[in-house]
């Protein structure tokens, strides 16, 4: 049972509570915490540090080209920001489809990352975009951790119990880049990814693919990169046959699970389809073509 609840107004105060109260856990929008507790999956923490009043955590800016957003930044803001949609498009693709409008208004990027679900929408885009997070603790200052190294398993992160995720920093992709995130969805709201893929491609001067990063959602205990698929794309022609080959490569090494939502068979086959389409969307955007946000909607019926 929760018997301690504090809502500090500064980061320092929040850090002080986390340091002295071993059972204290931060909560922002609560969209994962409360739902899990209601369903009986995870009881509410004994001690809650509510961080929603900390103004500094809600700030966002573009500094020297990098996107710098506080942990309290909502999915709705990310999905609607003209800057994010233009330069970090995969992130907007993902933020636009988290849950429902109500979830997006209340849920935060910090919460999404610290919840460390293998099916989180925003994580794969942040991984391919090379994003980092800042973790702060009292007496230890701050440290920078790549998003790719934050989650270590379903629901578990490499953060210490007294650390607070304060900021997400996303560097500006190189020129001639495009990014996209697509999930396979049976319905278009209140949905969780069956499988998902995020892709960042950079085109060379001759329009071939100079480099690519691919990250996969819901096919492992954490978000994983797809190095074999990336290798197919690097230096390759930006054409459908290459995209398909990369999709097949991504599916070949994946070990998706059987569960009530999909069989392993179907998931594996769909991974190839989703990766192929996500690459096509990212390449189109790199060329300057408009693919609507969220790309998951556009994906229906596209070449596979």
């Amino acid at each position: 049972m929760t018997d301690r609840f504090i809502a500090p107004t500064t980061i320092e105060d929040a850090l002080a509570i986390l340091a002295r109260d071993k059972a204290a856990r931060p909560v922002a929008g609560g969209t994962d915490l409360v739902v899990a507790s209601r369903q009986g999956r995870k009881p509410l923490p004994e001690s809650i540090v509510a961080i929603h009043r900390i103004a500094e955590l809600g700030q966002h800016a573009v500094n020297d080209g990098s996107l710098v957003v506080g942990a309290l930044t909502s999915h709705a803001w990310l999905a609607g920001s003209a800057e994010v949609r233009r330069h970090w498009t995969a992130l907007a693709d993902a933020a636009a489809i988290v849950g429902s409008p109500a979830t997006r208004a209340t849920g935060t990027i910090g919460g999404n990352l610290m919840n460390a679900s293998p099916a989180a929408e925003t994580t794969a885009p942040l991984v391919v975009l090379g994003a980092n997070v800042m973790l702060r603790a009292i007496g230890r200052g701050s440290r920078i951790v790549p998003v790719a190294n934050l989650a270590v398993g379903p629901g578990r992160t490499s953060a210490a119990a007294d650390e607070l995720l304060t900021t997400v920093i996303v560097p500006l992709p190189p020129a001639a880049s495009g990014s996209a995130y697509i999930r396979l969805e049976y319905r278009r709201a209140m949905e969780i990814a069956i499988v998902g893929a995020a892709v960042l491609v950079t085109l060379a001067a001759d329009s071939s693919i100079a480099s690519a990063r691919i990250a996969l959602t819901a096919v492992g205990p954490t978000i994983v990169r797809a190095p074999d698929a990336e290798a197919v794309l690097a230096g390759g022609a930006a054409d459908p046959a290459t995209f398909r080959a990369a999709g097949a490569a991504a599916a070949a090494t994946a070990r998706p699970i059987d569960d009530v939502r999909a069989s392993a068979d179907y998931r594996g086959a769909m991974l190839a389809v989703v990766v192929t389409r996500t690459i096509a969307a990212a390449v189109a955007r790199a060329r300057g073509d408009a693919i609507p946000i969220p790309a998951s909607r556009w994906a229906h019926g596209q070449e596979a």
Binding site: Q39, S100, Y186, R187, A189, M190, E191, I192, V260, R261
Partner: peptide, 24 residues
């Protein structure tokens, strides 16, 4: 509804028993 071989419902929740929403 998906049943296991043990006769128990496997998707007895609104996350996995999926209703259509206005978005669709």
């Amino acid at each position: 509804t998906v049943f296991g071989a043990d006769g128990l419902q496997r998707n007895a929740s609104l996350l996995d028993y999926k209703l259509l929403t206005t978005a669709d």
